[in-house]
Amino acid sequence: MKKLILLAACSVLLTAAPALAHGPHEHGAARLDVAVEGNLVEISLESPLANALPFEHAPRDAAQRQAVQNMAATLHKAENIFVFPAAAQCRIKKVKLESEALPEALLGANTTAQPEKTQTSQQNASTAPAVEPKPHADHDEDTGHDEHGGHADLDASFTFECAQPEALHGVDVRLFSAWPALHELRVQIVSPTGQHAAELNEQAHTLKW
Rank of each mutant, 00 (worst) to 15 (best):
H136F: 14
D172N: 12
A156I: 12
E141Y: 00
V187A: 01
L107S: 04
T118N: 09
Q89E: 11
F84N: 02
S121W: 11
L102F: 09
H183T: 00
K93L: 12
A87P: 02
S99P: 04
M71H: 06
K117R: 06
S177I: 09
L102P: 01
L182D: 04
H183I: 01
E184W: 09
T193Y: 08
A181H: 07
N110M: 04
K117M: 02
S191R: 01
M71K: 06
A181M: 08
V171P: 00
K134E: 14
A125H: 11
A181E: 10
L97A: 02
P133S: 01
I92T: 01
T120A: 03
D146K: 15
G194H: 08
T120E: 09
P192R: 01
A152N: 13
Q188S: 05
E98A: 06
Q195E: 06
F82P: 01
A137L: 14
V83H: 02
A125L: 13
A128L: 09
D153Y: 13
G150N: 13
T112Y: 12
A167E: 13
H145N: 13
T74I: 10
G149K: 15
Q114C: 04
A128C: 08
Q188G: 02
S177E: 11
V187P: 01
I189V: 02
G149I: 14
C162F: 15
E116Q: 09
L175V: 03
A125I: 08
P115I: 06
F160Q: 04
E147S: 14
F158D: 10
N124R: 13
L182Y: 08
H136V: 11
V131D: 09
N110C: 03
H196K: 03
A78Y: 08
S126N: 10
A181Y: 10
N80T: 07
T112E: 13
C90L: 04
L154W: 14
A178L: 07
V95K: 00
Q114W: 09
E147V: 15
D146F: 15
A181I: 03
D142L: 13
R186N: 06
G108Y: 10
E132L: 12
E147D: 15
I81C: 09
T127Y: 14
P115Q: 07
V171A: 06
R186K: 05
L185I: 03
S191D: 03
I92A: 03
R186T: 04
V171I: 12
K94D: 13
T143C: 10
E116N: 04
V95Q: 04
L97Q: 03
P85D: 13
R186W: 08
Q89T: 04
D153Q: 12
V190F: 04
F160I: 05
D138V: 12
N110V: 05
L102R: 06
H148W: 15
W179E: 05
P133I: 03
F158I: 02
A87Y: 14
L107H: 04
E104P: 02
G149L: 15
A86W: 10
A78D: 02
A163L: 15
Q89Y: 12
Q195C: 04
I81K: 00
A137Q: 14
S157G: 10
P165L: 13
